[in-house]
């Protein structure tokens, strides 16, 4: 990640990474390879791949474009921990525990 203040090349590096990952997502979304349409762990393999690619893009935006990578460790934890704990918890509550709603209604 290096020293950011003196040059611009890292910006274009991140740009190409974001662009290529997006291009892969769009290509997969259009082609829909048949072997990726099998269901593993509650959803299709292709959806797991989309989610992983999205998290990679998110990490580059937050760490590089928002400079969180260069902040003090305490600030990194203050910002990342609430999101990393609360969001998966909410997803678990809604998507796993919330499914009984379809039985009730």
């Amino acid at each position: 990640m290096g020293n950011h203040s003196n040059s611009n090349w890292w910006i274009w590096k991140v740009f190409w990474i974001l662009l290529i990952v997006t291009a892969i997502e769009v290509a997969l979304g259009i082609i829909k390879p048949p072997f990726m349409m099998e269901v593993y762990f509650g959803t299709k393999l292709i959806n797991h791949i989309f989610i992983i690619l999205t998290l990679i893009k998110a990490a580059y935006i937050v760490m590089e474009f928002m400079h969180l990578g260069q902040e003090k460790k305490g600030l990194k934890l203050v910002i990342l921990l609430p999101a990393l704990i609360l969001i998966p918890y909410m997803l678990f509550i809604l998507l796993t525990e919330g499914l009984y709603a379809s039985i009730m209604i």
Binding site: L75, V78, I79, P82, A83, L86, I87, M90, L91, L94, L95, G98, L99, A101, S102
Partner: peptide, 25 residues
């Protein structure tokens, strides 16, 4: 600004999680 963005991120994840819930239903 960071603290505001955390709360905003949680708001958006609430929306998207609700979308997922409806879609799974």
């Amino acid at each position: 600004m960071w603290f505001f963005l955390i709360t905003d991120a949680l708001t958006f994840s609430g929306f998207l999680a609700a979308y997922g819930w409806s879609r799974f239903k």
